[in-house]
């Protein structure tokens, strides 16, 4: 298992109302279905101060108030596909990006048929 570099690090040059970056965004595993537990580093910037929370798949990871920038760093159980979002006090996502797991080898599943069953 290894990490992909982040796609956007230049949060200090945020020209939008909100900017959000995560490192990494993708976790690569050997086989589809393998678990990935890795450290997630997040940085966000807001041009207007307000209570904000960082959430993954709808669950809050951390919350801030009276600041216009914040960081988060924690080891998490990586989602197969999950939305990482910066939300306001009402839980509405203001900006988001997707975290995912990708595999080097195809997923395995059970074979349902039987060998030489044609006869």
């Amino acid at each position: 298992m290894f990490l992909l570099p982040t796609s956007s690090q230049a949060t200090e040059l945020c020209e939008e109302a909100f900017c959000l970056s995560a490192t990494p965004e993708v976790c690569i595993v050997q086989r589809a279905g393998d678990r990935c537990e890795q450290e997630l580093r997040v940085h966000w910037i807001a041009t207007e101060i307000q209570p904000l929370c960082l959430s993954l798949q709808g669950e809050a990871l951390a919350c801030w108030s009276d600041v216009e920038t914040g960081s988060y760093q924690e080891k998490i159980d990586w989602p197969q596909h999950g939305e990482l979002a910066l939300t306001n006090a009402h839980g509405q996502p203001l900006i988001s990006l997707e975290l995912s797991i990708q595999s080097l080898r195809p997923r395995q599943r059970r074979r349902l048929g039987s060998p030489w069953s044609v006869f």
Binding site: R31, A32, G33, D34, R105, P106, R107, Q108, R109, R110, R111
Partner: peptide, 12 residues
């Protein structure tokens, strides 16, 4: 992971 089933696992 299919490995948990031990038998009959194939690549998709």
């Amino acid at each position: 992971p299919c490995e948990e089933y031990e038998t009959g696992c194939i690549d998709t």
